[in-house]
Design a protein around this nucleic acid. Structure first.
Lengths: 362, 362
DNA sequence: CATTCTTATGACATCGGTGACATGACATCG
DNA sequence: CGATGTCATGTCACCGATGTCATAAGAATG
């Protein structure tokens, strides 16, 4: 690979002049510039980042770590999408700044995180972003104080800057929308209670009920570990069977995520129930591979992974450029509700409740 | 960030000695080594890759580009998983070699590829891998001859080394398995015919029929652009309706991928048909978020993305270390069939056909 | 004991680009 | 016309790690 010296020789100028052409600092004569450009093209010159950053003491690299599993026993990446969308969001935010994003995937192995951080540091990254697969608490090895770190989709005990989905608000928005559509008996099939998101969403669900002055009914609330290989489906079947068997059964089931909703479709139908005519179904995530493809398409709220990534990127840039904002609380990000045909409007469009819904959510 | 000189000063030795401790070349006295180790720990020293690679003229970095869309109009990443799994495979293959993988995501924009390649070259990557979202033909900008390039999940017109899924073989394996289970009328709902994989899979389907001496029936073969926002579902509904309406309807539907299968579940059930009792369904991909979560779980073949990535990594390493294998033909990778309850065994376990199936597939 | 070998260490140049400073040729101004 | 400013370009040192060669102190050898 050729160097500026090669280019300089070919163009008959000094290396410094080539550098000036490259960077557009200092003035360069028109003829000289042309000669240099020509020489660069002829040699297929690409400038070495190593040499450059050595001098500049700046790498222009952001390190991003993804794919680590949480504390849960299930190491399998089934979904994998959050990572991807968050990464894209990060990239979008950093694009304009001229930073290069280096991504390292742990392949689900926690023990790979320290060496990865080490590698990043050896590349003198200007900042680090850690992306978790799902909303969770994490514990990362310490990084040097002069390397800013942002957590995306997770948080830690020592108050590292974090960007998190606003699960509570999202669930509340969705349930409010269901209420606005006329639903009063709303079943809540939550995720495993150990999951951070599960608790928050449950709270959001209760928020919405309270706001509409609908009494809470614990028969309508359950948490299911539907993800478990075989028993998962059975547990879910049982929960649904129980919930639909009560005196005043729900007209809609709010599922912990879109995947659960997908399973619920199958279960309801195998019970001989039509979706959404007899039971409506709502999801969570707007995991589009599912929500848009399900038949009928799924009403759900969008977990704004892209935005989370973008915010994380922006925040990191701010930290790099020196704005002191170390001890800010986590940034919460919400997203839109996607209204699709898996949920019926219980009455003919109820203008009053619609209007109220919109007023309350401006 | 501290340098070897800082460490050297603190340990009271020369920089070169520190370097020797770091790299384990040249001999170092026991006491000296200890002093240096101590100093490094005290300063939290991490060696600078930039300086190192400048000297060594080797970066130890592999550049990986993902997320570019093909020539199709639909820029939306719905699935996103192939990329991820292929990337993990690559990482696994390169892990042992000590290479660092730098990943850049195009965010679906083709015009970002050239600048990304440029960035990678400026980091003096030792090799490049381009990962496509789905099996397709691509055209990449030229890269310098001394930087090896491997294509994963795609190929180009100029014979760049490529690793591809063996769609034909995979589909054939699946259909053979269906035949072994007693199915004779097998519907084929393929992907859009423009897709490379669609043609290959159709050929594989015909291979399997031919091998079992089952006559081809074009009424059982169709290709559906099910991915299209609204009309997609309608097209699919219509195709299924038509296929099930013929004189001797299929007992199983082979879908173009697992997402289509998910939609087919919904459509069949909305037609009042039970899955799998009245119609069996098979997918393609083993997109686990879908295949394992669908109710009932989906029979499908596994598109071995992880293996594709691993092969790509291995091949790249071979090219870097100088094995000349430029003009080898693409490497095809197959994967296992996952037999789940979405397909019935038409007869009581037919030992003869099972035996034949296994013999033919050893 | 002199010679050769080994071990432990350091001095210095080098990789490729760029910042600091210098220089020469004109142009501008009082 | 001399002083000053601007433009175009060059010289040189430096970033941090490491390869090459040198050197000094002991150990092994004859």
């Amino acid at each position: 690979m050729s160097t500026i010296y090669d280019v300089a020789r070919l163009a008959g100028v000094s290396a410094k002049t080539v550098s000036r052409v490259l960077n557009g600092d200092g003035p360069v004569g028109e003829a000289t510039r042309k000669a240099v450009d020509q020489a660069m093209r002829e040699l297929g010159y690409v400038r070495s980042n190593a040499a450059r950053m050595m001098r500049a003491q700046k790498s222009g690299i952001i390190g991003l770590i993804t794919g680590a599993i949480g504390t849960h026993h299930q190491p399998v990446i089934k979904q994998g999408l959050p990572d991807l969308h968050i990464v894209q969001g990060v990239q979008r935010a950093l694009d304009a700044s001229g930073m290069t994003v280096m991504i390292a995937d742990t392949g689900g192995r926690k023990d790979r995180i320290p060496p990865l951080i080490e590698t990043f540091l050896s590349h003198r990254v200007e900042g680090l972003i850690y992306v978790a697969e799902y909303h969770q608490e994490v514990t990362l090895p310490r990084v040097p104080d002069d390397t800013p770190l942002v957590l995306a989709n997770c948080f830690d005990a020592i108050g590292t800057p974090a960007i998190l989905p606003d699960d509570r608000r999202l669930q509340s928005d969705l349930v409010k929308r269901l209420i606005a559509a006329g639903h009063r008996r709303i079943g809540f099939l939550g995720l495993r209670t150990e999951m951070v998101a599960a608790k928050l969403r449950r709270t959001g669900y209760l928020d919405a009920l309270a706001a509409a002055k609908i009494a809470r009914d614990d028969q309508l609330i359950t948490h299911v570990d539907f993800d478990e290989p075989v028993v998962g489906a059975q547990l879910l079947w049982d929960s649904i069977d129980r919930m639909l068997g009560i005196a005043n059964p729900p007209s809609v089931l709010c599922c912990g995520n879109d995947q659960m909703a997908m399973m619920v479709y199958g279960i309801l139908r195998s019970m001989g129930l039509r979706v959404p005519e007899e039971v409506s179904v709502a999801g969570f995530d707007n995991y589009r591979a599912v929500s848009e493809t399900l038949y009928p398409p799924l009403t759900t709220v969008e977990l704004p992974y892209n935005a989370i990534g973008a915010r994380a990127g922006e925040r990191l840039l701010a930290m790099i450029s020196g704005e002191i904002q170390k001890d800010q609380s986590p940034i919460l990000v919400a997203g839109p509700t996607h209204w699709r045909s898996s949920v019926t409007e219980v009455r003919a469009p109820n203008l009053v409740s619609f209007k109220r819904f919109r007023e309350e959510n401006e």
